[in-house]
Design a binder for these strands. Structure first.
Lengths: 232, 232
DNA sequence: GCATATTATATTGTTGACAATATTATTGGC
DNA sequence: GCCAATAATATTGTCAACAATATAATATGC
């Protein structure tokens, strides 16, 4: 089997697309506000306010809303307006199920497409230093590392289709992921799981890497289920 | 584990949503024309034409285009217009990968959520009569049965998130699926695979059902790979 | 004072006109 | 006849005004 030669980790993209059109700029900025909880679920979003703030016509705002709605980030009720999507426990469980198989696919493809050296940086990143940071509850460092892991895997997987699906799902669950990290014990478990996954990937064991990633999501699901009263 | 009591197979929805708004009607109709190849890939779609044909303003057409673009059914080039998305072989392979894991998940959840009786109708449908039909190259009968299978599984899986993803993917690959069916041997193989999957599901063997469904998609992928020169 | 009806306000939905851009047709030079 | 430059047309992009609807405020009957 020929392997794609992916040698360089792209820098973690804080803003995925600089974007050209007004509509794109709006989508990106609103997306950011939603996933960072700057606009928490249930927030009402008025077309006029945004149009004024961004100095664009309401039509552009409207177009952006259409895209965000299709991505499941906002909900539009006819003649009433748009609100940031509020997810119930059921939806999160459904998303965990989907993430399980898609992220499993991601690491499988990533393993198949790369040489072991590709993973040196990530293996290094998920070393003792990060372990210490996790024990010290340095969640920012851990979140950043997870983002790097994601980025590296998606890049290596090389499937735009998969990337699109994962990006959409990521946006929807990011704020929950951040909260889940606070649950005592979850972060360090996740850290160890990622170490193990990375070892399997570098060893070229695609099946095991996929299985481990699926285990990883399933365990996150379990933690969510146990603590969802506090998390939602 | 408690099982959801899904007792009735919903009739196969020829038109998923009757839909209320003009935009929704447009989306549904355009979707239909695209997936049936009435508008083949590469077709130019003009906003004015559609606006006139459906007696709506261009704005509605524009909104519909936004949705279809987000779903990956059309492509919009700024100041040039919209064309029906044309998929390359690579995209189809990516879609096969994603389908493999998502449809695997679908049958796993469907198995876990239902009692054996739920599947009596489908087991019956995939009986000797349909087998004969397949041997006689009655592709319409087979396509209809496959649609029923899908519908029953998605219903039983009970995940709106998964349903949404599968519906999107389905739209993108439908015309290819129809062509793939023409490849000598593929239909009868697919038929037998579905019989086996249904048996595993009814036996309550979720893991095996998932694995068999994944095998099913993988084999379809292989056929596509072998004959893609004729199929694209 | 409370519930209901009515008016006023705010917000979203829709449209047609106009601007910007690309495509096609025409002209002129050689 | 062929190519380039220019004009004419067609198509998409944007906007601001207007309509429809929902929400809030006010008035009215009891």
């Amino acid at each position: 089997m020929t392997k794609r030669n992916v040698t360089k980790l792209t820098t973690v993209a804080s803003n995925p697309k600089p974007a050209g059109s007004d509509t794109d700029r709006l989508v990106d900025e609103l997306r950011r506000r939603i996933v960072t909880n700057e606009m928490p679920p249930g927030s009402r979003i008025r077309e006029n306010e945004l149009a004024e703030e961004f100095s664009v016509s309401r039509s552009r705002v409207r177009d952006a809303f259409g895209i965000l709605e299709e991505r499941g980030l906002i909900e539009r009720i006819p003649n009433k307006g748009a609100v940031v999507m509020r997810l119930e426990a059921d939806s999160f469980l459904e998303l965990f199920d989907v993430r399980e198989v898609l992220e499993g696919l991601m690491v499988r493809l990533a393993t198949q497409n790369t040489e072991p050296e590709y993973w040196d940086d990530l293996i290094n990143l998920f070393g003792d230093d990060l372990g210490k940071a996790v024990e010290d509850n340095d969640f920012n460092a851990y979140m950043a590392a997870i983002a790097q892991f994601r980025q590296g895997c998606i890049e290596a997987a090389g499937s735009d289709t998969l990337r699109g699906l994962l990006d959409d799902i990521y946006d929807r669950v990011l704020s929950m992921t951040r909260r889940l990290m606070l649950v005592p014990g979850r972060a360090s478990e996740g850290f160890r799981q990622h170490q193990e996954i990375l070892r399997a990937i570098q060893a070229g064991n695609a099946d095991r890497a996929e299985e481990l990633k699926r285990d990883n999501i399933r365990s996150a699901r379990q933690w969510f289920l146990k603590y969802n009263d506090f998390l939602l």
